[in-house]
Amino acid sequence: MIERLRRTLADAFFIVLAAIAMGTFVGAANFTDYGPLVALDVGTVIIGVSLVAGVALGLRMPDAEPQTVVLQAFASGLGAIAIVMVTIFAPILAGVVPSLEVLGSSGSARIAFLFTALFIVPIHVVGNVIGYALSDFLAPSRFGGGRDTAGR
């Protein structure tokens, strides 16, 4: 029971880490006008960071069922999109402007940011599946790849 709880908390922690990694990089890539520390391209960041975070998350879950892998990928992807939304609406949340129209920002531009951020989810799911397959491939043979091989 305690072991199961510990494993669940550990998985949740790394799902949150993956969400933070993806959400922060994609959020920062959308605002390169504000002088980032490094120049980032939105498309490259969405594909690259989502894939890498997905592979890393998938590698960590060799014992999980495939549907759990996909569900956890969805959860971290949605967390990343929430962070991107917080980034876009940060001036309102900080209370410095009543609305983003004051800054000359159009609703269509914000929708475009959010639409591109949605691509995090499918790419991250693909990364998770790749990582899950890799962990199975890399697992020691005597453990059968962490799956129930009784049917083989």
Binding site: F14, L17, A18, I20, A21, M22, G23, T24, F25, G27, A28, F31, Y34, P36, L37, V38, V49, V52, A53, V55, A56, L57, G58, L59, R60, I83, T87, A90, G131
Partner: peptide
């Protein structure tokens, strides 16, 4: 994989905090 996720999350947070 765990180290990679931690590094990504920390570096992303630093960059994001600077931008925001």
């Amino acid at each position: 994989a765990a180290v990679a996720l931690v590094v990504l999350a920390v570096s992303g947070t630093i960059l994001w905090a600077h931008i925001v």
